[in-house]
Amino acid sequence: MLTSKQLHDIEKLQRECETYDQLQIKLNWEMLRNRDTDQLDYLHYENEELVAFLGLYAFGSTVEVCGMVKPSERRKSHFSRLFQQGMATVKQIGSKRILLNAPASSTEAKAFLTKNGAIYGFSEHQMKWNEKHLEEVHGFTLRLANTEDLEMRIRLDIEAFDLAREDAQAMESRIDGDADNNMFMIEVNEETVGKIRVKRENGEAWIYGFSILPTHQGKGIGRKVLKRVVKEQSESGHSVHLEVETLNEHALGLYQSIGFQVVHAQDYYTYN
């Protein structure tokens, strides 16, 4: 478990790196704040100042890795040492898949990953909604998820996102432990056909896990749901954001059509 000072130091270092490099670093803060172990985060201090950080984020059989180094402390092997420690832990955990995450515009991160044999896998867009008129929509119901919906949520992750069942179970169980999340189930004619999660923090509303069963896709349900959720969150005073893989052209086109624009991108590399 990270202490309040460590969390503050990580946040301070993140702001400095993002300002210096003019990019956005994805650190999975909801997981950092709710750690139940001190074995997944690696911090290096110089003169009581945090200068390098690496975090491991386990999702079932997959582990994501992300980190950063203070600009003035780069090229001193700080991150290489943390990376070696992190990979030793990943080996102990027995993760089947390792994803290294880096801002798409970071040439230094790409150089490090390439040097260490990582292979580019895919990219993910972070998008922000620009205000525009959205009409009222009907034909579906949104209700808060309950414990009986867990199996359907897992099924949606498997069928809509092609996740392994182990990963889907781990992800949905982790989400239930975050008090800032609202998980909504999507119903049409009293049948559950999808889900959408909204996380609100610091004036921002982030949309995650938005999925419709393949048998109900192509009927305009997703577009209607997205319009209502965006409209409600915006009217409550939140800026609205989401993430989408660049390979998912259908989803990307849907989001852009109702006013979302790409503001940042993250690259994911596979590592053996």
Rank of each mutant, 00 (worst) to 15 (best):
M127Y: 03
N130F: 02
E131L: 12
K132W: 00
K132P: 03
H133F: 13
L134H: 09
E136P: 08
E136R: 13
H138Q: 15
H138A: 15
G139P: 06
R143C: 12
A145D: 05
T147N: 04
T147E: 07
E148N: 07
E148D: 09
L150Q: 08
E151A: 11
M152I: 12
R153M: 08
D157Y: 13
D157A: 13
I158N: 01
E159W: 13
A160D: 06
F161I: 02
R165W: 10
D167Y: 02
A170F: 06
M171T: 09
M171P: 00
E172S: 12
S173I: 10
R174G: 10
A179H: 10
D180Q: 11
N181Q: 07
M183T: 14
F184S: 04
M185N: 07
V188A: 04
K199G: 05
R200F: 09
E201Y: 15
N202I: 10
G203F: 10
G203A: 09
A205C: 08
W206G: 00
W206P: 00
F210C: 06
F210I: 09
I212H: 01
T215Y: 06
T215R: 10
K219A: 08
K219P: 04
K219T: 03
G220C: 12
I221N: 04
I221V: 13
I221K: 07
R223P: 00
V225D: 03
K227R: 11
V229Y: 03
K231Q: 15
E232I: 09
Q233P: 01
Q233H: 02
S234I: 00
S234G: 12
H238M: 08
S239N: 07
V240Q: 03
L242N: 01
V244N: 03
H250P: 02
H250R: 10
L252P: 00
G253E: 07
G253P: 02
G253F: 04
L254R: 03
Q256S: 04
Q256L: 00
Q256T: 05
I258K: 10
I258E: 11
G259E: 10
G259W: 01
Q261I: 14
Q261S: 15
Q261R: 14
A265C: 15
